[in-house]
Structures are given as structure tokens and as C-alpha cells.
């Protein structure tokens, strides 16, 4: 398919050679800057490198609240999950990885998930479950290191999903702010 982007190039650009050198000067500029900036870090003198890539497993980033890690269930102050097993996340999940067995509880919320499992091998971290949840009970945490060699271990049961509210406060505030804008 030919896409005509209507780009008109000047005569200077059409020679191509000068533009190549311009490109090369940009990249080699980075090259030398980093080559020199690399040295203090190599000698362990200076923690602040010019290169901002991290040495991943040794150094970790703190993710911004917008980061979508593995979905988890919020545990409220009273020690129970907020989820009422309404099943909306189960139906909205495009990867069909959530499975919930609802049941009745004596608590005021009447309904609770007797079992709640997410197949993390299938989850695509889309965050739909979080968006659809009427109780802000399932949120995307900032945990992303969930790889495993055994598929069976990727079935996260309810107790693996429960995370206390305090730890998720940042994300909870964030989703309130962004989903509050929609006003369905």
C-alpha cells in the first residue's frame, strides 16, 4: 500500500547526504556523551549516571500510580475484601481469566466472593476489571514480577490477591480521579 504523506522535501534534504550526516551527528553526540558519562559509574564513583536506564534486578523503579501491574483485591479496614462478587469484572475481562464463586455472607454487604481466582498467565493487564468494578474492589497494583515456570502457580487464589487498602492508597486515589471524570 502506498501512503502519500504529502511530505515535500527541500532541495537540501533531497541530496540526502547532508541529512545523513546530521543524523549521524545526533547519534554520535549521544554516543560520546554517554561514553564519557559512563566512566564515573563504571568506577562506582557516582551513582548518578548520565544513562537513565536502570540495572533492572539490582535497581528498581518506583512506578507512577498510573502503572498497571497485576490486579489485586482491596482489603478494607475491617479486614475483609471489598468485593461483593458482582461478576462484572468476570464478564468484562477480555482474557476471560477471572473466576468468581459468589456466596452469601452475614456481613452487611450480603454477598461476597467465596472463591476468586485470576489466571495471571492469561491476564493482559488491561485494567478493565478495575474500571468496571462498582466497589473499587479490584485495582491494578504496581507488582509486575509474576513470571513463573509452572502454569499451575499462575492461578492466583483469593488469599494471594488480597492486599490491604493502605498499600494501594495511591492507586485508589488515582482511579477515583480518572474514572471520576467519565460520569457514566
Amino acid at each position: 500500500m502506498i501512503v502519500n504523506r504529502n511530505i515535500t522535501m527541500t532541495w537540501w534534504e533531497r541530496i540526502y547526504l547532508p541529512e545523513i550526516f546530521r543524523g549521524i551527528s545526533v547519534t554520535s553526540n549521544h554516543f560520546f556523551r554517554n561514553l564519557i558519562g559512563f566512566i564515573p559509574a563504571l568506577l562506582n564513583k557516582d551513582k548518578k549516571r548520565k544513562i537513565f536506564t536502570l540495572y533492572y534486578p539490582d535497581e528498581k523503579v518506583e512506578f507512577p500510580p498510573a502503572y498497571r501491574g497485576r490486579p489485586v483485591l482491596v482489603v478494607d479496614e475491617n479486614g475483609t475484601e471489598r468485593c461483593v462478587a458482582c461478576g462484572l469484572c468476570e464478564i468484562v475481562c477480555p482474557a476471560k481469566c477471572i473466576e468468581i464463586q459468589p456466596d452469601e455472607t452475614e456481613l452487611e454487604k450480603e454477598r461476597y466472593p467465596k472463591s476468586f481466582s485470576i489466571n495471571m498467565a492469561r491476564c493482559i493487564f488491561c485494567g478493565f476489571c478495575e474500571e468496571v468494578c462498582p466497589k473499587e474492589a479490584i485495582v491494578m497494583s504496581d507488582e509486575c514480577e509474576i513470571a513463573d515456570l509452572d502454569r499451575n502457580k499462575m492461578f492466583y487464589k483469593k488469599d494471594q490477591l488480597l492486599i490491604s487498602k493502605n498499600k494501594l492508597q495511591k492507586r485508589l486515589n488515582y482511579i477515583k480521579e480518572i474514572y471520576g471524570k467519565w460520569n457514566y
Partner: peptide
């Protein structure tokens, strides 16, 4: 290594012998 530096990355550095990775 060169492509890494040109792209503001670190590049290969994981292979080590006795803990020395020698860039």
C-alpha cells in the same frame, strides 16, 4: 555496546565470571 550508548541504554552487562562483568 555502541548501539546501547547511542540509544542512551546500558547494553550487554550480565555475563560475568566470579562476579566481574567487565562492562
Amino acid at each position: 555496546k555502541q548501539s546501547a550508548l547511542m540509544q542512551d541504554r546500558i547494553g550487554a552487562n550480565r555475563a560475568d565470571i566470579l562476579g566481574f562483568s567487565m562492562i
